[in-house]
Every structure is written in C-alpha cells, then in structure tokens.
C-alpha cells in the first residue's frame, strides 16, 4: 500500500486555461495499492483538476503532444516519462508550447 503523496502541480504556457486559470495546485494523492506514477497522476488530474476540453491536455494515457512535462525542473524525458514513480514533495510542471507566438 503506497502512502499518500503530496505534490506541487503547476500549469503554464497557456495550459492553466484548462484549469480555471489557476497555475499552482498543492495536491495530496490518496493511498492506493500501486505506487503513484505520472501515468496514474494524469488520470487523477483528469478526474480532479481538469475543468474543460480534456482532449487539449490528455490524449490516450499521456499528455497531448506539445505539452512539456518537468519533474523537479528536469525534462520528464530524462526521468522515465509516464513510468516515473512520484516521491513526496515532488514538483510537477506542465507547460504548453501550443499557444501564441
């Protein structure tokens, strides 16, 4: 049984518009049998934080192409992407590259 995980989840670059314009979310993920990873975090975000047009944020079980993910300020491509196991106090940032120019 995985313990609850507290995270700072941030949205930027226009992604915050899908979350009522709120950029910073202090969240606590509940206990669950499996350890939390980014894949399960995305599902949780879709159910609990995402306010509108989910297809602009999530496609399939991952983020929409063009949304950058930083785990503690490091590119998620270096951290195992969807399989990264979340640690307590992690900072996860989603930045859209799809807006404006």
């Amino acid at each position: 049984m995985a313990a609850p995980v507290s995270l700072l989840v941030e949205f930027g670059g226009g992604a915050e518009l899908l979350f009522d314009g709120i950029k910073k979310h202090q969240v606590t993920l509940p206990c669950q049998p499996e350890p939390w990873d980014i894949r399960s975090l995305l599902k949780w975000i879709k159910q609990n934080l995402l306010k509108e047009r989910p297809e602009l944020f999530i496609q399939g079980d991952t983020v929409r192409p063009g949304i950058l993910v930083l785990i503690n300020d490091a590119d998620w491509e270096l951290m195992g992407e969807l399989d990264y196991k979340l640690q307590d106090k992690d900072n996860i940032i989603f930045i859209s590259t799809l807006h404006g120019g």
Partner: peptide
C-alpha cells in the same frame, strides 16, 4: 525548436503571454 524556446523562457524566468487567439 519550440520545446527549447519554451524551456529557455522558463529557465530564464521570462514573462510572456500565452493565450490562444
């Protein structure tokens, strides 16, 4: 690449506007 431009702006703390027209 767009990814690098966005990360450059993020790492430098540049303030930009990002709403779709």
């Amino acid at each position: 690449y767009e990814k690098e431009i966005v990360l450059y702006a993020y790492f430098q703390g540049l303030d930009y506007f990002s709403t779709e027209c």
